[in-house]
Design a protein around this nucleic acid. Sequence first.
DNA 1: TCCTTATATAGATAAGTTTCTATATACATT
DNA 2: AATGTATATAGAAACTTATCTATATAAGGA
Lengths: 107, 107
Amino acid sequence: MEKNYEDNAKIIKAMSDPSRLRIIDILSCGQKCACDLLEYFNFTQPTLSHHMKVLMDCGIVECKKDGLWSYYSLNNANCNKHILFLMNLITDKDDCICKVKSNLECK
Amino acid sequence: MEKNYEDNAKIIKAMSDPSRLRIIDILSCGQKCACDLLEYFNFTQPTLSHHMKVLMDCGIVECKKDGLWSYYSLNNANCNKHILFLMNLITDKDDCICKVKSNLECK
DNA sequence: TCCTTATATAGATAAGTTTCTATATACATT
DNA sequence: AATGTATATAGAAACTTATCTATATAAGGA
């Protein structure tokens, strides 16, 4: 029981940072490599690396390596429906109070 | 845009602590005064007071004073549907992966 | 083989969070 | 009025987090 509060808190905590919310938002348009993601932010490459680790550690994001590049994407398969729903809340353009996605152009 | 990530992160952050998840879980059974809430936890009264402040500051919980007592309840009216849904995820016994609520008895 | 490039890791620092003890506030009761 | 009780606030300690710089790793191309 206690354990469930802990586990859920960990996943929710991973989403409780503005930069990581934005990363989730960006990845909702499809996979991106680290260097592309980095262009959306003012922080450094190691900081992005840290954020991606947090998102991967709790299963929200997965990584596919190809040569020098790391391609990140939302790990929908691994996310339980609760987290998926929250991600949709944040990323779904049409049904979104926060309008976070409105300034992104998905290709 | 930036602002929305910040605002959403603040609300999500308020829910990213195991103790506060449990408080939300307990309040899903109905309003409780601080001293009743406190019995579920091992921390002190000022610590509970801190957690309630965090939950109230972002609008998840509201407080009704009656004499010496402070009655806390989930502020469903003020919560937008996104947050409500996440609270349901955590608190709804029948449709809940986390099963957080299973050990609570609502009267 | 050497250099460049993409990403990860190590370690430090500054800021934020959770918790505590001590104390204040404010209402109730005697 | 004095005392007791429920809650809030202040301030400090311990821990965690976000960020940085410097460096390591590992793959590709000259």
